[in-house]
Amino acid sequence: MNLSPDQTIMFQAWGVPINATIFYTWVVMALLTVSAILITRNLRPDVPPNRWRTMLEVIVQGIEAQIEEVAGRRERHLLYYVGTLFLFVAMSNLLLVVPGFEPPTASLSTTTALALSVLIAVPLFGITSRGLGGYLKTYLEPSFIMLPFNIISEFSRGISLAIRLYGNIMSGAVIAAILLGVAPFFFPVVMDVLGLLTGLIQAYIFAILATVYISSATATPPNTEKENP
């Protein structure tokens, strides 16, 4: 029994082995992209919105509203990043119910990659927002003594993000596989239903935590604002 889809080789491309994680990631990417293209191809001001476009607008505006609620402001670049994070994780977890599909989020490599991307995104957004000096200064707050703790905190965030998502999704898939052997009909269905719920919740938690981390790095410190006399 393979606990990670990394160990499953789907095919070879130009001599490079493509494992199940990368393959199913491409499947999810293709699904998301094709869906987006199909839904938004007739997106013109003179065409009235249909139900698919309305659904997408609700999703996008919901994500934007969540980001605004957490960050306190509208940030389109953050929306692109966090929205993609949420849609990718949610779509991967929802496809868990498809027979034979192995969610990429059940691979520690994928969750590590997502956590690393968040780890990289936090300083990038912070530097973009505050400048290099302003961002580095946050590691010395409230005192320079806190520098090692801030660095450890930064890395522990990424590790916790990766392990949390991986653990939840992988455990759901493993439990479903075990129960499939023990009781082939009823329990796997129940566990898959629960897996859908936990998958969506995990996608939401992952996206919200990423938003919190990035917005905390980009937030303007209160003491730098000019006080009105």
Binding site: R53, V60, Y80, G83, T84, S109, L116
Partner: peptide, 27 residues
């Protein structure tokens, strides 16, 4: 795989930005 997934994720960010967020947000 981690590197590939990071690249995949960045490509997905660009694709969704190009085909999903921009049209929707522009609309």
């Amino acid at each position: 795989t981690v590197a590939a997934q990071i690249a995949n994720f960045l490509v997905l960010v660009w694709l969704l930005k190009r085909f999903l967020y921009r049209p929707i947000l522009d609309g």
